Simulated assay, not measured.
Amino acid sequence: MLILKKFLRDVPAVLGLCIILMVCAIAIISPLVVPDLDSVYDGDLISRLQPPSAEFWFGTDALGRDVFARVIMGSRGALEVALTVVALAIGIGVPAGLYAGYTDGWGGQFVMRLTDVFLAVPQLILALAVAQLMGRGLGSAMAALALTYWPFFCRTVYGEVRRLRNALFIEAQQGLGASTSRILFVHVLPNVVSAVIVRATIGMGFTIMTTAVLGFLGIGATPPNPDWGLAIAEGREYLPQSWWGVTFPGLAILITVLGFNLFGDGLRDLVDPRLRRSR
């Protein structure tokens, strides 16, 4: 209850949570908001590049598709990609961090040196290189992002495990003859879950932004899928006259990423007050 009160006093974090809930609600009910999928995928050249109006709230793109419908349906794709990428990264990074943090052998050292190699290269550049090697498509972009994001979880878990492994309750379990797997997954992992959740929350926003960048560069989602980054890439050719084709997908990315970042910062303040941001 005390933690909840502290969180509710954090106005930016509450605002971020509200934004996340709003985006999730839009993604869930998007088929109801956009019952006519033809306006999302099929073009109507007669209605191309129409400005925002009562009929087309966000205007239409160069193929006559409803920008509002594509932005709404794009929210579902953005969240699905972010959840998948973060889940895969957790599945790789958390066990690797547990193993490297608890052991002192060459295996743990190898994991951390590999992690350092990945972290030495900016994730976006590395994701671009991996996605290019794997081929164009949303699946390749998701795999590339997962393969380049797991080191962040590994490094986070590694630091927490190194801090905990000499704690009294761990030494007590060792004295009782508990197996390494039991110590790691029953006693250590619950103590690092909060740090993983914070990293995952912030990672959701970063993944959405990076996915949009890949889509903008033509490596991620492919036409006619409703992707925010792809929509910006398609609409930039008609700037500045048809500004709506770029503005509304860009605002969707901005608001969604901002929500995850604000919420993630609030969770970080609760988990580790030493990292509390200045207000």
Rank of each mutant, 00 (worst) to 15 (best):
Cys24Leu: 15
Gly220Asp: 05
Val23Thr: 10
Ala131Gln: 01
Gly74Val: 00
Ala78Glu: 03
Trp57Gln: 06
Phe68Ser: 12
Ala195Asn: 13
Ile197Asn: 09
Phe7Glu: 03
Gln173Asp: 15
Arg113Gln: 09
Arg165Phe: 10
Val85Phe: 01
Leu145His: 08
Leu126Glu: 01
Gly97Phe: 04
Ile253Thr: 03
Thr148Tyr: 07
Arg236Trp: 11
Gly135His: 02
Thr256Phe: 02
Arg162Asp: 07
Ala13Val: 08
Ser242Arg: 12
Asp61Tyr: 08
Ser47Gln: 13
Thr211Ala: 14
Val85Ala: 00
Phe216Val: 07
Ser30His: 04
Val111Leu: 13
Val188Pro: 09
Pro12Thr: 07
Ser47Ile: 06
Leu17Met: 13
Gln132Asp: 15
Ser242Met: 13
Arg199Val: 12
Asp38Leu: 13
Pro151Trp: 11
Val67His: 02
Cys24Ala: 15
Ala27Val: 09
Leu126Trp: 12
Leu168Ala: 15
Val81Asp: 00
Ile183Ser: 03
Ala233Cys: 06
Arg277Ile: 14
Gln123Glu: 15
Ala252Thr: 00
Gly159Ala: 10
Gly107Trp: 06
Met112His: 08
Phe118Met: 13
Val161His: 05
Phe153Tyr: 06
Pro95Ala: 10
Met209Gly: 07
Val14Asp: 04
Glu237Tyr: 14
Val34Met: 08
Ala131Met: 03
Ala100Ser: 06
Arg48Ile: 04
Met204Arg: 02
Gln109Asp: 15
Val85Ser: 00
Val192Cys: 11
Leu270Asp: 04
Thr256Trp: 01
Leu79Ala: 01
Leu133His: 02
Leu126Thr: 02
Val86Trp: 03
Val271Asn: 06
Asp66Trp: 09
Phe153Ala: 03
Gly43Arg: 01
Gln109Tyr: 14
Leu267Val: 04
Val130Ser: 04
Val14Gly: 03
Ala200His: 00
Leu79Cys: 03
Ile90Ser: 00
Thr207Phe: 04
Glu80Asp: 13
Arg182Val: 14
Ala78Tyr: 05
Val117His: 06
Phe216Ser: 10
Ser75Cys: 10
